[in-house]
Design a protein around this nucleic acid. Structure first.
Lengths: 157, 157
DNA sequence: GTCGTTATTGATAACGATTTTCATTTTCAA
DNA sequence: TTGAAAATGAAAATCGTTATCAATAACGAC
């Protein structure tokens, strides 16, 4: 059943945090594991509800928020009014990536290229910031903004 | 009065884009120029309305959106449900910076350190992405997420 | 300067994502 | 097994943002 039992990695984290392991939480995590998309809370809810109709939207929100605070999930805003969520270190899932965002049509392009150079830069910066601001850094995001080819033509600005 | 007449730089950009130069737009731009904060639309509205009570909230939203699409303003989401806006190249204003965001208390720390190393990395990446995806890149954002010292103590997760 | 076209504006209503409330249910340690 | 505390879900409430539409203002042509 939906991977119950395997990836107990997050169960440990929950227990260490004093959080309980519940059916809705298992379902949400399973869904995130099996997805390649940037899912909104509503997207997750639809899938969760299909699996177990007793799961409510509120709980999905609460779970996603909790996972975000735990650093298990990363929350994004692409400017379309709804937050998107992705598992942070999805083993065997989506590769580490960043975003290219069109300011006109709000299209999102994921890119995974050039990560090698990034890693070095990020690690160095992270180390310095972490020390200087006494901050525990668990994740980062890099976004580039501009106009996609399509929008550049239909110009107005 | 509020810098009217100087910084005509944006007025030219408006004209080239076929956009009209109006009182509300001037006010919004002046406000952004004079601010060091990350302002929400409501923040801008309050100031704008104080300066000229006839300016409506709707127009503030429209103006900020327009400026964002023009690349004059950058829009951020720090996870507290409201968008924040900052002038991109504020001459004599705030230096180029990025953000350190506490996932627990949502505190934002601006950092300007280590930018030299960043510039090199960003330029290289930008050049490559731009070519590969046929995308005109006008801006970027780097954010680090984690927990601030204060939140690390009151732990729960 | 006047005029007319057309973009812009602002009040209000509508919208929709997220959060709050609170009574009920579930988890899990004792 | 049991009970305290955490978690849940349905519904209502919140609140940031957007759409509507009649009134207004900008600015090029004259």
């Amino acid at each position: 059943m939906r991977g119950r039992g395997r990836g107990a990695w997050w169960q440990e984290r929950f227990q260490n945090a004093g959080a309980r392991i519940t059916a809705p939480r298992e379902v949400v995590l399973d869904i995130l594991h099996e997805t390649e998309e940037h899912m909104s809370a509503a997207d997750v809810y639809v899938k969760a509800h299909a699996i177990n109709p007793s799961i409510g939207l509120t709980t999905v929100y609460r779970t996603l928020d909790m996972l975000t605070q735990m650093g298990i999930v990363q929350k994004f805003d692409f400017g379309d009014g709804k937050a998107r969520f992705e598992l942070v270190n999805n083993p065997g899932g989506k590769k580490h990536h960043h975003h290219l965002i069109c300011l006109k049509c709000k299209a999102i392009i994921d890119y995974t290229e050039f990560i090698d150079e990034e890693v070095e830069f990020i690690e160095k910066t992270q180390r310095k910031l972490s020390k200087k601001y006494d901050f525990t850094i668990t994740d980062h995001a890099i976004s580039f903004f501009g106009q996609c080819a399509k929008c550049r033509e239909g110009v107005s600005f």
